[in-house]
Amino acid sequence: MNKYSIEQFIKQTEQVDKGEGFFELETPRILEVNLDGLVWAKAGSMVSYEGKIKFEREGILEHGLSAMFKKALTSEGTSLMKANGQGKLYLADSGKKIIILHLQNEAIYVNGNDLLAFEPSIKHDIKLMRKVAGMMAGGLFNVRCEGTGLVAITAHYEPLTLRVTPGKPVITDPNATVAWSGNLQPEIQTDISFKTFIGRGSGESIQMRFEGEGFVIVQPYEEVYMQAQS
């Protein structure tokens, strides 16, 4: 068979059921959801589906007035949609690598721009870091996911997980920070001398400091957050 024929291309790239369950990595950058009910997903992340699936944007009052207030302050990256029905749903986000995590009565914080999908059994709450709201475009927000179930997050290129241990804090660039364990509460610090050293007006001068015991996931890429469009 000609290695460049259409038939060969289809054979190499076609969808194959792996029998992995609700979430399945069809490729490292495309998530297959074997849907029979409901899944939460990042708004705009659907690339294809088959079956009978209805999509609905998260209602602004769905989680109460406090959530509505927080959503008004954060960027479009927090927008979620509900996909309800039966079939196969394919999700992706700007070609980013997808990581599936099975929480077992655990919690994880995910950068609002890096949360792709999660099961309805997972409780989610938007957290806004007010200290940096005026320092970075769109502020800095994250989503706390808690409970038992599957969560899919995304990262540009290969993620790196750093362990945080007592007495050995980890400092990260907020734009490169993907997620961290639910028991950690990062402090925001600024380093004016570092800002001067690198000759930039923002970015690395704002840092996240993690202390205690847990982990932080970073990516070799700095995301740029845009203000929400009215």
Results as ranks from 00 to 15, higher is better:
residue 2 N to E: 12
residue 8 Q to S: 11
residue 11 K to A: 13
residue 12 Q to F: 08
residue 14 E to F: 12
residue 19 G to L: 06
residue 22 F to V: 07
residue 24 E to H: 09
residue 25 L to F: 14
residue 27 T to K: 03
residue 28 P to A: 08
residue 29 R to C: 14
residue 31 L to C: 12
residue 34 N to P: 09
residue 38 L to H: 06
residue 41 A to G: 07
residue 51 G to A: 14
residue 53 I to A: 02
residue 60 I to W: 09
residue 60 I to A: 13
residue 63 H to T: 05
residue 73 L to K: 11
residue 73 L to T: 04
residue 74 T to D: 02
residue 80 L to Q: 08
residue 80 L to I: 09
residue 81 M to L: 15
residue 83 A to K: 04
residue 91 L to H: 13
residue 96 K to N: 12
residue 109 Y to T: 03
residue 111 N to K: 11
residue 111 N to E: 06
residue 114 D to T: 01
residue 117 A to D: 03
residue 119 E to V: 04
residue 123 K to V: 01
residue 124 H to P: 00
residue 129 M to W: 02
residue 134 G to S: 10
residue 140 L to T: 00
residue 147 G to C: 01
residue 151 V to K: 10
residue 152 A to N: 04
residue 154 T to N: 06
residue 156 H to N: 15
residue 156 H to S: 14
residue 159 P to T: 00
residue 162 L to G: 01
residue 163 R to F: 00
residue 164 V to N: 08
residue 170 V to Y: 14
residue 189 Q to F: 10
residue 197 F to W: 09
residue 198 I to N: 14
residue 206 I to N: 08
residue 207 Q to R: 15
residue 209 R to K: 15
residue 210 F to V: 05
residue 210 F to C: 05
residue 216 V to A: 07
residue 216 V to S: 09
residue 216 V to L: 09
residue 217 I to T: 11
residue 219 Q to W: 10
residue 221 Y to P: 03
residue 222 E to G: 08
